[in-house]
Amino acid sequence: MLILNKYSFKSKTITLFSLFFVLLFSSCDKVVELDLQAGDPKIVIDAEIIWEKGTDGSQQSIKITRMAPYYNAEVPKVSGAQVRVENSNGNVFTFNESEPGLYVCTNFVPEINMDYKLFVQVDGQSLTATEKLISVPPIDKIEQELMPDITGPDYIVVSFYYKDPADQVNYYLTDYKSDLSPFPEYGSSSDEFVNGNEINQKFGDTDLKPGKIVEITHRGISKNFYNYINLILEASSANPFGAVPGNIRGNVVNTTDANNFALGYFRLCEANHVLYTVK
């Protein structure tokens, strides 16, 4: 079965509209900075425990930052936090600060379907989150093909294949990194209509040429994180002239003051990580 990942391909409609907009207003060269109201400098916890197949998963890291005004050039790092993760067997894994805002553990023990709980003490607040480590099937093969394009020449599409387990409901998150973009391109999917089948996911770009390297990270994720990341992806691809969406809440709970919530999501994923050189 074939899954077309709706977040993998660049939208030519948006590209063409953006070009038209630039041409229409090319005579206006004055830079306008809006006087935006700054929100609360909330804590942001980027806590992905990712167990790449073929590794022991012992080295893990968690980033803690703070929201900043829109025009700030840098994201404020949060130092001095106490960070640990405990599994349902009572084992404790301490994350020590290695540089401002980066907390590292070197003896983490990942176990599929194990429940883990995150504890963060920062700014006099206690933050917690709980998740299960989700498995992912291995990638069986990677292929490429030329995709017809009515607006220009054919372009290269890279596809990877894996066998979805038939005895469970599965959710996936994939990111693609290359020198085509300074940021990864993400795509989420589920096996709702293809449970137990071979699944094919695609990544394509008109600038994808022979010799380019595509770094693929394909994760198994929980249903709750799947719903959360879909809100993020939909917001990031929304109408640029639409209303700004509110903060999207993750699973981090402030047990000291529920109203002073943190942003971010604590998730644990097994992942395939491959480098593919376009032919």
Results as ranks from 00 to 15, higher is better:
Val157His: 08
Phe9Ala: 13
Phe95Arg: 06
Asp164Ala: 02
Gln168Pro: 02
Ser190Lys: 07
Tyr172Arg: 06
Pro41Glu: 12
Glu145Tyr: 11
Gln201Lys: 11
Cys269Thr: 03
Ala73Tyr: 12
Val22Arg: 13
Ser18His: 09
Ala47Ile: 04
Lys42Leu: 04
Leu208Gly: 05
Ile232His: 05
Asn247Cys: 03
Pro210Phe: 02
Glu97Asn: 09
Glu234Gly: 11
Arg249His: 08
Leu133Tyr: 00
Asp179Leu: 05
Asp179Glu: 08
Leu23Met: 14
Val169Gly: 04
Tyr172Glu: 04
Glu143Gln: 15
Ile43Glu: 00
Lys117Ser: 14
Gly124Lys: 01
Leu2Pro: 10
Ile45Gly: 03
Ile229His: 06
Met147Asn: 12
Ala166Tyr: 10
Val169Glu: 10
Ala238Ile: 01
Lys30Cys: 07
Met114Tyr: 01
Glu33Pro: 08
Asp154Thr: 06
Ile150Arg: 08
Leu4Glu: 15
Lys117Ile: 10
Tyr116Met: 04
Pro240Met: 02
Gly80His: 04
Ile50Val: 14
Ile112Asn: 00
Asp149Gln: 08
Val169Asp: 13
Gln125Phe: 01
Asn5Tyr: 06
Ser8Ile: 13
Gln168Arg: 15
His273Cys: 14
Glu111Asn: 09
Tyr176Pro: 02
Ser181Lys: 08
Thr206Trp: 06
Gln121Ala: 12
Thr128Asp: 05
Asn72Pro: 02
Ala68Tyr: 11
Phe25Pro: 07
Ala129Asp: 03
Asp29Gln: 12
Lys212Thr: 11
Ser178Ile: 03
Arg249Ser: 10
Gly204His: 09
Phe241Thr: 03
Pro69Leu: 01
Val85Pro: 03
Asn227Glu: 09
Asp140Met: 13
His273Asp: 15
Glu198Val: 13
Ala271Asp: 01
Val83His: 05
Asp167Cys: 07
